[in-house]
C-alpha cells in the first residue's frame, strides 16, 4: 500500500466535483418538499437531464446549451409528475416511483447512439493570479463554473425561502395547504412551479454527471444519486445549509473510498463502495436525532393530497 499517492489537496478538490450533482438535485427537491410535495422521481429526472444535456451538447457543440436542455428535460419530466399528482390527484409516492422507472428507460432509449462519444469540454474557472495560490487556489478556485453555480443556487434558495414573500407563501403552502387556500393562495400553481424547479435542478445535476464529472454517457449512470439526494433533504431537516454539509460529506467519502481502492487498501471493495452511503446517512441521522426539531421543520402537508373542497 502506498498512502503517499493520496494527495489531500487533490482529494478535497475532487470532492467538490463529486458532490455537485447531488447538491443540485437535492436543493431542487428541498424546494419541492417545502411546498408540500414529495417527488420520488428525482433519479428519473436526473438521468433524463443527463441524456438531454449530453445529446444537445454533442449535437450543437455548446455545453451551455446542453445544460439548458437538461433543465428543460428535467422540468418536463417533473411537469408530467406535477400534472398527474396535482391536477389528477394521483398518489405522489407511486407516481414518483413510476417517474424514476420511466426516466431510466426513456434515457436509455434516447441515449442508444450516444455511448462512447466524448462531449465538448466545459470551461473552468481560471483566474491566473488566484489559481496559483498554493492549496487554496487548487482547492477552491480551479473548478468548472457549475460548482460555483450550485453553491450560489443553494444560497439563493436559502435567501428565497427565508427572506422573500414568495418564499413565505411557498412555505405556508407546504405547512398547511387548506389554510393557504382559504387565504386565497394558488396552492396548485405554486406547487407546479416548485415541482418544475425541482425537475430543472435534478436535470442540471444529471447533466453535470454526463457532461463534466464523468464525462460520457452510459446507461443508468446516475447510479442512485437521485435517491441519495432525496435522503439528504430529509436528513438535512429541510435546511439548505445542512444540505451542503451532507452533499460534501457524501462526495468526500466517495472520493476517499475510490482513492483507497486505487491504492489497494486491505478492505473488501464491497465495504468501501457502500461506505459513502452508510457514513452519510449515519452522520445525518445523528445531526437530526432531535425528533421534535425535525417535525418543526418538516413541511406539515408533505405528501398529502390537496383537494379544494369547493
Amino acid at each position: 500500500m502506498d498512502f503517499s499517492a493520496l494527495s489531500p489537496v487533490a482529494l478535497i478538490a475532487s470532492l467538490m466535483v463529486a458532490s455537485t450533482p447531488i447538491l443540485l438535485a437535492a436543493i431542487g427537491e428541498l424546494v419541492v418538499e417545502k411546498s408540500g410535495v414529495l417527488n420520488l422521481g428525482v433519479e428519473g429526472m436526473m438521468i433524463t437531464g443527463a441524456i438531454f444535456g449530453f445529446a444537445i451538447s454533442v449535437e450543437t457543440g455548446s455545453p451551455w446549451l446542453g445544460l439548458v436542455a437538461a433543465m428543460v428535460g428535467g422540468a418536463g419530466m417533473a411537469l408530467i409528475f406535477g400534472i398527474l399528482t396535482q391536477v389528477f390527484l394521483s398518489n405522489q409516492v407511486a407516481t414518483g416511483l413510476a417517474l424514476t422507472l420511466f426516466g431510466l428507460g426513456f434515457s436509455a432509449l434516447v441515449g442508444q447512439s450516444y455511448t462512447g462519444i466524448k462531449p465538448p469540454p466545459f470551461p473552468r474557472l481560471d483566474i491566473p493570479a488566484l489559481t496559483e495560490i498554493p492549496y487554496i487556489g487548487k482547492i477552491l478556485l480551479n473548478h468548472d463554473y457549475m460548482v460555483y453555480i450550485s453553491l450560489g443556487l443553494v444560497l439563493a434558495v436559502w435567501y428565497f425561502l427565508r427572506f422573500t414573500r414568495k418564499g413565505l407563501i411557498l412555505r405556508s403552502i407546504g405547512e398547511n395547504h387548506t389554510a393557504a387556500h382559504a387565504l386565497g393562495y394558488k396552492v396548485i400553481r405554486v406547487r407546479l412551479l416548485a415541482i418544475m424547479f425541482g425537475g430543472a435542478c435534478a436535470g442540471l445535476g444529471g447533466a453535470y454527471l454526463s457532461l463534466i464529472r464523468v464525462p460520457q454517457w452510459t446507461e443508468g449512470m446516475t447510479a442512485g444519486a437521485g435517491w441519495i439526494a432525496l435522503a439528504l433533504v430529509v436528513f438535512a431537516s429541510w435546511k439548505p445549509g445542512r444540505l451542503i454539509i451532507g452533499a460534501y460529506l457524501f462526495g468526500g467519502v466517495t472520493i476517499l473510498q475510490l482513492n483507497l481502492q486505487a491504492v489497494g487498501v486491505n478492505i473488501p471493495v464491497a465495504y468501501l463502495s457502500m461506505a459513502p452511503y452508510v457514513i452519510t446517512i449515519l452522520v445525518l441521522v445523528i445531526i437530526s436525532s432531535d425528533r421534535k426539531k425535525i417535525s418543526l421543520n418538516a413541511p406539515a402537508s408533505l405528501g398529502r393530497v390537496f383537494h379544494a373542497s369547493n
Partner: peptide, 10 residues
C-alpha cells in the same frame, strides 16, 4: 375561520 387558518410552525 372556524378551523383557524394558521401555520403552526411559523
Amino acid at each position: 375561520f372556524q378551523h383557524f387558518s394558521l401555520f403552526e410552525a411559523m
